[in-house]
Design a protein around this nucleic acid. Sequence first.
DNA 1: GACCATACTTGATCCAAATCAATTCCGATC
DNA 2: GATCGGAATTGATTTGGATCAAGTATGGTC
Lengths: 218, 218
Amino acid sequence: MYKAGLFSLILHAIASPSKSNNVFEAFRKYIREKSNVTEEDLVQIEAVCQYKKLRKRQYLLQEGDVWKYNAFIVKGCLRTYTVDDKGNEHILNFATENWWTGDRESLQTGNPSAYNIDALEDAEIILITKTNFDQLCNDIPAFNDMVNAILQRSFIASQSRIHTFLSLSAEEKYQAFLQKYPQLVMRVPQGMIASYLGVTPETLSRVRKQSSKGHRPS
Amino acid sequence: MYKAGLFSLILHAIASPSKSNNVFEAFRKYIREKSNVTEEDLVQIEAVCQYKKLRKRQYLLQEGDVWKYNAFIVKGCLRTYTVDDKGNEHILNFATENWWTGDRESLQTGNPSAYNIDALEDAEIILITKTNFDQLCNDIPAFNDMVNAILQRSFIASQSRIHTFLSLSAEEKYQAFLQKYPQLVMRVPQGMIASYLGVTPETLSRVRKQSSKGHRPS
DNA sequence: GACCATACTTGATCCAAATCAATTCCGATC
DNA sequence: GATCGGAATTGATTTGGATCAAGTATGGTC
């Protein structure tokens, strides 16, 4: 245990540890695919990247803390959620490999976050502070464009999720989720999917039973 | 009637008609407040603006059409909504003075829109085609920054609305709406607010009755 | 391989909100 | 100022999903 802690300290201290090379390679690949940055730009980007490991159940952000980064997920699965008075969790989103996460609102305003973010699986993450990130956006137009394209897509997705709440039943929301995020269904506990859809675990369980009856009655 | 049509044709034909001067002045004011564009930039921006009037109930966009603009509202109130199989309307958002509207998804993908946008009151709108708009973003960094800031805020707001659906009751959603958009409550028919909140008009009516009992029992 | 904690299922009951069905209340139009 | 049509209210009833309460896997740990 103590050894592991020491090792990760070393990882942080040295510039390009062997382990995180793979990590950055995944990040580089992502950026190359999504934008037209040059190799020199990539060097500048990597220079401000921090590497972070999370074990399952560990927090990336806790309610009440101010969020100061942009977080890119290299490996693993995280969730953003709140806990209400009655202790119920409400999941705002999941994020897996090649997605970004964090609390844009807290980042923007500097106010304490209303959200928790934790790891559903062991995870590896790249963090860039807001200051550095803004600098990158200023210095590298292609990076800026990429960031805006991502934001645009996020917004469109969230509009579509709102529409889901306005117009679909529990069953329909689940079917839509299956369509949209088939990989997540395998990775995420069912109760959390229920929470994401805004229904109880019991309801989702029944919905699944029902719809399995419909298809292929064996 | 015919006269009015002729007049608006003339409005379109000439460069800076007296009437739309006021319109552009409102737009200029907005941009000056929200960004650091120069007066020359403003000239470039205005050069690509189209002016459009809508009467109450008129459509800005109909389901199935491809949306090609960014629309700034100078005056009036519009809504974006869908109609489901049973004929129920689901309102995704309202937009009033100094807001932008349109369908980002259709604009982005070039696919036919799933949404309708129409005017709840007579409205005056400035339209900029996607092509021109992208050009402005390229040419004028301050304009680009403004646009991204707006998108950022829209995303944050829509996250917060999602949270609303996950965690609040009908009554709580209405109270939150009152807090967030007090002006809209006066302008928008109650049934449409119900639709925006994802409840029936009957439920909203009862919710209001209940909560009025609670406060100041006369 | 026994044990425990956590997730999932299943059943019974309850409740918030939907639906169905009249009124009543306006604001626009003649 | 009478009339008409859409909006809001109100009431009665139904219902989808929540809640409460056991069971039943299932995966992780010793």
